[in-house]
């Protein structure tokens, strides 16, 4: 068992060091949500009124409303970027190095996933600290309860990235991932507007948003920030993680996985 954790810590450490070395990635991860928070939210606060809906017990400003969605966005981007780094790693061969180590493949991939989640949690807390500097604060206990929530939501979004990395063929396809995964998931969710707002314009869009796992990740983050348990969102997130990770394991299985497809091209 000790061998398992030795490998896990090494993989997490490597990912964290790589992230810290890539200062531009660190900066981009921070600037992106801050632009949404400080510019977008300021512009839209007058246009979008938010009524009192759970877990909020008073009226809140739009900036406060979108903070959980932006935490989710950080993890969504990070999950996809980890998948990009996996594709990049495969090209560089580091993934091969990982996969030829004598540990079960599911553990190696889970370790890789946890490494990405650790980095995303770091990003979220730095973002929240900067947001607090701009006067956008949350209940103190919420910051603590957020940690286990981010672990679960990060695993789900990371597993989606892992699944995509097992099917993506070229580095350039990250633009495709942006267009077809990140943007639809983000905009078709409760990150920027509550679902009841969506149903006012289209029931179909509302239903799509309600089925989007990212919506449930955002709601799980939102509820935990206000010390409220959201069992439905938790089940959705856990079930989505199980499906994504299971499919990713099939994608990385040597019998019918990525390496085989890649060679055939």
């Amino acid at each position: 068992m000790r061998v398992y954790f030795t490998a896990l810590f090494a993989i997490v450490r490597r990912e964290a060091l790589r992230f810290l070395h890539q200062r531009s990635r660190f900066l981009a991860a921070l600037v992106r949500p801050l632009v949404w928070l400080i510019v977008f939210a300021a512009g839209f606060r007058a246009a979008l009124g938010v009524s009192i809906i759970p877990p909020y017990q008073t009226y809140i400003t739009y900036e406060v409303y979108i903070v959980p969605g932006l935490c989710g966005m950080i993890q969504l981007f990070n999950g996809m970027q980890s998948s990009l780094s996996l594709v990049y790693d495969q090209e560089m061969g580091s993934m091969r190095l990982l996969l030829t180590s004598p540990l079960p493949r599911w553990w190696l991939l889970l370790s890789k996933l946890l490494a990405g989640v650790a980095v995303s949690i770091l990003q979220v807390y730095v973002f929240l600290a900067v947001a607090a500097g701009f006067g956008i604060t949350l209940p103190a206990i919420g910051y603590v309860l957020l940690l286990p929530t981010l672990l679960v939501t990060g695993l789900m979004l990371g597993a989606l990235g892992l699944l995509i990395s097992s099917t993506i063929r070229q580095l350039e396809n990250f633009a495709g991932v942006m267009n077809f995964v990140i943007f639809p998931m983000f905009f078709l969710s409760s990150a920027l507007y509550p679902l009841w707002k969506m149903s006012e314009s289209s029931d179909l869009l509302h239903d799509i948003c309600a089925l989007n796992p990212f919506t449930h990740a955002v709601e799980l983050i939102r509820f935990s920030l206000y010390q409220t348990f959201n069992g439905t969102a938790l089940i959705w997130v856990l079930a989505s993680f199980a499906v994504f990770f299971g499919a990713a394991l099939v994608g990385y299985d040597p019998a019918h996985g990525l390496t085989r497809r890649r060679r055939r091209e």
């Binding site: 090209e91 560089m92 061969g93 580091s94 091969r96 190095l97 030829t100 004598p102 079960p104």
Partner: peptide, 18 residues
């Protein structure tokens, strides 16, 4: 597979370095 892999050292054609 794990016992077999633990007995193998590999140097791939493509570099695998950080």
């Amino acid at each position: 597979p794990r016992a077999a892999l633990s007995k193998i050292g590999v140097v791939f054609q493509q570099p695998t370095l950080d």
